[in-house]
Design a protein around this nucleic acid. Structure first.
Lengths: 132, 132
DNA sequence: GCTTGACCTTCCAGTTACTGGAAGGATTAA
DNA sequence: TTAATCCTTCCAGTAACTGGAAGGTCAAGC
């Protein structure tokens, strides 16, 4: 299967698949004219990668997960640990973003949003009247 | 004030301040030997930038906010619009991350995390048994 | 056989917001 | 004078692609 069809199949842009090959995540065979030939196994791995990425795993996490996936003697504890570390980071990001959202929400609610220059948002960013 | 002291003062790394100068966010004067000289106004602007960044605004948003901040004839509606757009993106990110966290939480809870290879996390990523 | 359009290839550059490090000049304290 | 600590510029790297140029290939239609 050529890259265009493979891309359709797994729902990734062809560019992304080429990139994954470049960094060694998939290694499709090449046809006579140099076209990539994706096997069922390649498609399987690409699907695995697409789903891992959709869950927010980094490329290096994906690489580790893919290695474990292909290792019949893996320990599920290793997979779980990667997932737990990732979840910890996600939870932290959510907290950070929620704090930002909270502040922004407040500031937006306080701002008249008219044609006058006074603006509590700028006042907050300026901070001339605040300790921090 | 030299860059080291300025960095201390506003809580940004000197590298970051040099970068902000490079992209035109601050334009400190230069002393005889080429050292940057930060005025009170420069420090003010850097503080403004640091706080805007801490609220997650992009550099380009910061540039726009700084311009409005320095424009006495601004309309607060413009500031508010930038903040609202930013908040919308943050809320979207939070939703995305929460969806990931939800799935990860479930998968982690289902995984034995022992030395056996069976792993619902990998099964999910593999997806051989699922439609999607 | 030839053309046209849709494929495919590689390679280079750009994105975001810095960060690290090298090479070398300036300043200050001992 | 010498050592430590500044400061300068410039180059490269980060994460994960994405866009685009230049050029080869393939299948369909005339």
């Amino acid at each position: 299967m050529n890259i265009g069809d493979a891309a359709q199949h797994v729902g990734l842009p062809a560019k992304t698949i080429r990139y994954y090959e470049e960094i060694g995540l998939v290694i499709p065979q090449r046809g006579a004219k140099g076209y990539r030939q994706f096997s069922a196994r390649d498609l399987h791995n690409l699907t695995f990668l697409a789903r891992s990425r959709a869950l927010g795993f980094s490329i290096e996490d994906c690489r580790a997960l893919l290695t474990l996936y292909q290792d019949d003697s893996r320990a599920s504890a290793d997979v779980r640990q990667i997932a737990r570390n990732h979840l910890t980071k996600i939870d932290q990001k959510i907290s950070d973003l929620q704090a930002m959202a909270h502040t922004l929400n407040y500031l937006i609610s306080e701002c008249a949003g008219n044609d006058r220059p006074e603006c509590p948002i700028l006042t907050r960013l300026d901070g001339s009247d605040q300790v921090n």
